[in-house]
């Protein structure tokens, strides 16, 4: 993982549940098959009601029609990001679309585990609410080491919460690598 992620930010509100991240009708695609796994990038965040997609204005698609990758580098959300079902397809879809860092006030537990145990995303948390400080399309930089997020469009910088106990699993790249590193699994 690059220590600094730069690019455009995609802003969402509170309680973005896994049905909004990847609607259930697409769960028959099997991520174990590369051609089907690709589809999740195309479909990422396609369940978000358009008015709430890409705040503050909304009506903004995360992935353009016909594309498999997003033009955005970072997702910024509010409270309880990833609530709802346990589908690992949710962080996987975001990662397939090309986003490796999500910043939110806090996460639903299973989404958080899936993000780090599957090695898809770095789920960073914000000590205060940032959703109103960013507009979709603003240029941002996320410094994973600090950790911090800077809005290059407005010039404002915000400290993010340390990764804490999950840090070693994120740095290892997921639960399997972590277990191998710590000797629980044979290499």
């Amino acid at each position: 993982m690059e220590p600094r992620i730069t690019g455009k930010v995609f802003v969402l509100g509170d309680n973005i549940d896994t049905d909004q991240i990847i609607p259930a009708e697409y769960l028959s695609y099997n991520p174990a098959l590369p051609e089907e796994r690709r589809q999740f990038g195309r479909l990422a965040l396609s369940g978000v009601p358009l008015a709430q997609s890409g705040l503050p204005k909304g009506n903004c698609r995360f992935v353009q029609e016909g594309k498999f990758k997003t033009d955005y580098a970072v997702i910024l959300g509010g409270k309880n990001f990833g609530c709802g079902s346990s589908r690992e397809h949710a962080p996987l879809a975001i990662a397939e679309a090309g986003v490796k860092v999500v910043v939110a006030e806090f996460y639903a537990r299973i989404f958080y585990r899936n993000s780090i145990n599957g090695g898809y995303l770095v789920p960073l948390e914000t000590p205060s609410r940032l959703v109103e400080q960013f507009s979709t399309g603003d240029e941002v930089e996320v410094d994973l080491a600090a950790p911090a997020i800077t809005n290059r469009t407005t010039g404002k910088s915000f400290a993010l919460s340390p990764l804490g106990q999950a840090g070693p699993i994120i740095l290892a790249g997921g639960v399997f690598e972590y277990a191998r590193k710590t000797g629980l699994l044979a290499r």
Binding site: S86, R87, E88, N114, N117, G118, G119, G174, F176, A179
Partner: peptide, 24 residues
Amino acid sequence: DSHTCTAGAFGEFATGVGNSDAAF
């Protein structure tokens, strides 16, 4: 499945996980 917590009605610890945890 996130609703795996249902089984707690019988006094056990039951929780939902994703595919990587389940594969582990």
